[in-house]
């Protein structure tokens, strides 16, 4: 694997489809973090994110001969695969709650509501809130606000109109704001305990 590669995605994809291992390694190195972080935020579980990352790139290996760069950028294409794989995985595992999540939600001294002002606790709380959003809002919030994709790019990933992306993002932000306010209110301990991962 080369540490940095300035070749274009289309060139790398063409070479990888022709069987060049270095080209595929460059693609993997360029986008593995994006895919992993997206899956981690969507699932709330590092273990699931690892599995999803692996499955996404295995799918890419098989799909490379059919990949057409002029139809979608490689990052958009990978986001689309990651979204589908993550949704399938969450649907399949909806009866299970990741061990890490259960541990996080367990009342402890570190998760004391009185120490909510700390930065790490705020982030932990925000992760749980994002995880509790319905997936159609969660994926838009993650893509636009966390990963910094534009409305148009997000629309291409989700195969949805830009207007739909905007409305879902607005709705998702409103839901987050409401839940953050609820968490900061005096009786927020009970509210926090109710937050679960939304798999819909």
């Amino acid at each position: 694997m080369t540490p940095a590669d300035d070749r274009s995605d289309a060139d790398l994809a063409r070479r990888a489809a022709a069987g060049e291992r270095d080209a595929f390694a460059a693609i993997y190195e360029r986008y593995r973090g994006v895919v992993y972080r997206f899956a981690r935020l969507m699932s709330g579980s590092p273990a699931t994110a690892e599995d999803v990352t692996q499955e996404v790139f295995v799918t890419l290996i098989r799909a490379l001969p059919r990949y057409e760069p002029h139809r979608a950028g490689l990052l958009t294409y990978l986001y689309g695969i990651a979204r589908n794989v993550t949704r399938n995985r969450l649907r399949r595992d909806r009866r299970f709650v990741a061990l890490e999540t259960a541990v996080d939600e367990k009342p402890s001294g570190a998760d004391d509501p009185c120490a909510a002002a700390s930065h790490s606790q705020q982030l932990s709380q925000l992760r749980r809130i994002v995880l509790a959003l319905p997936s159609r809002y969660r994926e838009v919030v993650i893509l636009c606000d966390v990963h910094g994709l534009s409305y148009a790019e997000t629309a291409r990933v989700l195969h949805a109109p830009v207007g739909t992306v905007r409305s879902r993002l607005n709705r998702g932000r409103q839901m987050i704001a409401v839940r953050v306010r609820e968490a900061e209110s005096p009786g927020h301990a009970c509210a926090t305990a109710r937050i679960e991962r939304c798999v819909i």
Binding site: H119, Q122, L123, V141, D145, V146, R173, I176, V180
Partner: peptide, 8 residues
């Protein structure tokens, strides 16, 4: 919310 998401 925006600041929180940026921090996230």
């Amino acid at each position: 919310v925006e600041q929180l998401l940026r921090a996230l």
